[in-house]
Write a protein that binds this DNA or RNA. Structure first.
Lengths: 186, 186
DNA sequence: CTTCACATGTAATGGGTTACATGATTTA
DNA sequence: TAAATCATGTAACCCATTACATGTGAAG
């Protein structure tokens, strides 16, 4: 049971989903390909944390819809209360910033402009997800379980939004620094 | 040549360092153990990007001081100008936030308090590094190469500071949300 | 007629973590 | 006397990415 396994369990508390749908759903939150996910689903099914129902389809390939079990929910509940390990961030940009004096000025600026664009598009995506989540929350009534899962999703999405806003702010600040430092160095 | 290799090259543009020192220096910027670093140094030495001098010591074990070569500097220069891949963030807290409704309220709050404390200590560490970098900048004169490496280090450290400030702000906001949502749900 | 979406799997390779291995000196 | 710092390396294992593999239907 690695972190990704718990992430899959977490998604399954909101909805029963196929391996394919889990792969799509987890993408904005955690980088993982389908080749990582399918074997984990097999192993969690063997452990009794999830169960599946085979859905036969004629037009599309058959699929397996996974549902979290009581044992799976209990496992997840225990994990949630354990302290979260420090986050691991691997960002090439860090080393490129460190070595930015080696780049031609236009290329240095381009590096930051591209990153700012990437972060703005991520920001838009997360903001859309927040809106979809709020709509879902209103559409369904206010039963306790449902507001609980939409609340968790809201917290998470707000975190992603704040992180992206901070990254955009950094890029804009750094572009300004580049421009004000360009001349005095020579 | 993976990202970590370029990171090691980047550090060697400021100072010649031993494998041990590189391991310590890179820690605040990139998670990597010495068992990853020593083999990369061997392979970069074989490629001609770095060279080393063996220093014999009597009180402590012998060491190898690595220096970047012209070829290494050229390799790094080319890499810096290529677009930076999107960052990869793996943070358990994301999934724990999603599943926070499963945790008892005190444990949910403790999760966020612990993370806020971690981020504040990181923030302090980076702020100290910025001060050390500024002192270094003043101590040495203002020759072009030196201001260049201290500038890159400054940019990078400011990014880390901004990221940590954003994380602390999130934790504080989320703790407030937890408290205001605790009662109305029942 | 090619690409995209749906849908599930395996295999090879590369990257990262933990543990094994050694050994002197200093500090608690 | 136990732990920490300095110093370098290897081995085993786990995790992640890319590629291989198959097949239908819809849309451009």
């Amino acid at each position: 049971m690695n972190t990704l396994s718990y992430g899959l369990l977490a998604l399954l508390t909101a909805n029963s989903l196929s391996g394919y749908e889990l792969t799509q759903s987890i993408k904005p939150l955690w980088r993982a390909g389908h080749s990582q996910i399918y074997p984990l689903l097999v192993s969690m099914e063997q452990k009794g944390y999830i169960s599946y129902e085979r859905i036969e389809q004629t037009d599309k390939p058959d699929k397996k819809i996974y549902t979290i079990t009581e044992a799976g929910l209990e496992q997840l509940r225990e994990w949630v209360e354990t302290p979260a390990d420090p986050p691991v961030l691997r960002d090439e940009l860090h080393f490129k910033l460190y070595s930015l004096w080696l780049a031609r000025p236009e290329e240095a600026k381009a590096l930051l402009v591209r990153r700012a664009e990437f972060c703005r598009s991520e920001l838009d995506r997360y903001n859309l997800m927040i809106k979809a989540n709020e709509a879902l929350c209103q559409e369904r009534g206010e039963t306790r379980e449902l507001t609980a899962t939409t609340f968790g999703r809201y917290l998470l999405l707000r975190k992603r939004v704040m992180d992206m806003e901070s990254s955009v702010a950094f890029c804009e600040w750094a572009i300004g620094e580049l421009e004000s430092n360009a001349v005095p160095l020579e």
